[in-house]
């Protein structure tokens, strides 16, 4: 079985804090790299191969020949095969959904049992491609994987998902499936020098979808697109209610927005007091009755 990893050619803008630049100047500093989520996706695929759950790992990226850098890294990190899907559009800014469809077209022609991709790319981070790929292929999608294992009996994947606040959800998913990864579980993979050199002697094979229907750009939905230097919005912050009087606003500020609660006050010795606390614990479900 083949595991396919979809890697995005993410873009990094290197700017000095001392010399802020306008948008065009800033865009000129772009350098391609693989995002952390995509690396995690590659790692999951490779570890499945190490568990002998898949036989080969193929890395695919979409873009022009400049995207070969990404494939070179993937190859050096251990991918068995690399393919490039020729693509002209700007996948990050507008064309997430067409590029997803083209990739799905390519995947349909491969003997892929499982497709991994990064959950979000570090540069655009719209997160749409895996949804589009899964939808076009009609495969189930499991997002935010942190741990992926093959179940011993059935050709199913057992996946730990990061569901926020450090909690995990364990799901089981039949194959074929699309899995998005959020972070590296543990350890670190290093690119191998021999493979880096070997990559230079190769021509990167390109793959095109069997029938190229000419994906319409997302731009057809847009009237205008404008780029500026970002002005990040401040996070929310405690602000006194504007409907209050000046004195009340001031009082809220001085109290730090903390309101005294009319809570129960209990006097008691250690044992006595402890049973009160214990009652609350039971009530909240943190202690047995």
């Amino acid at each position: 079985m083949l595991a396919v990893v979809l890697l995005k050619k993410a873009v990094f803008l290197s700017e000095s804090a001392l010399r802020p630049q306008p948008v065009q100047g800033l865009l000129a500093t772009r350098r391609p790299f693989i995002g952390a989520h995509d690396l995690a996706a590659l790692h999951h695929a490779l570890s499945l191969r190490e568990q002998a759950a898949v036989s080969r790992v193929a890395a695919i990226t979409a873009g022009g020949s400049e995207a070969d850098v990404i494939l070179c890294q993937a190859y050096a990190l251990g991918a068995d095969e690399v393919f490039r899907v020729p693509w002209e559009g700007d996948a990050g800014l507008t064309d997430a959904s067409p590029v997803g469809r083209v990739l799905a077209g390519v995947l349909a022609g491969l003997p892929a049992g499982v497709v991994f991709c990064g959950h979000l790319s570090p540069d655009s981070g719209r997160g749409l491609v895996p949804y589009v790929v899964a939808q076009s292929l009609g495969w189930p999608l499991v997002t935010r994987a942190v741990k992926v294992q093959m179940t011993p009996d059935l050709p199913h994947l057992r996946i730990h998902r990061d569901v926020g606040r450090g909690n995990r959800e364990v799901v089981e998913c039949p194959l074929p499936a699309v899995v998005t990864a959020v972070r590296y579980p543990s350890g670190w993979r290093y690119p191998k020098c021999a493979r880096l050199l070997a990559f230079r002697r190769r021509n990167v094979p390109t793959l095109s979808p069997p029938s190229s229907p000419g994906m319409p750009s997302e731009k057809r939905w847009l009237a205008d697109m404008e780029m500026t230097r970002a002005r990040p919005r401040p996070k929310k912050i405690f602000t006194p209610d504007e409907n209050l009087s000046a004195a009340e606003r001031m009082k809220m500020i001085v109290s730090g927005g903390l309101k005294a609660k009319k809570g129960k006050v209990v006097d008691g010795s250690g044992a006595d007091a402890a049973s009160k606390v214990y009652e609350v614990l039971v009530e909240c479900g943190y202690a047995p009755k």
Binding site: L13, R30, D123, S124, L222, D224, T228, R229, A230, R231
Partner: peptide
């Protein structure tokens, strides 16, 4: 925001296009 929050892109939708979006929380 794109490119590690360095560049902002404003999309104006064409008339009649539906908008599907998620809005950043904590702001």
């Amino acid at each position: 925001l794109f490119y590690e929050e360095k560049i902002a892109v404003r999309y104006t939708l064409a008339p009649g296009s539906p908008l599907l979006a998620t809005l950043a929380v904590g702001l």
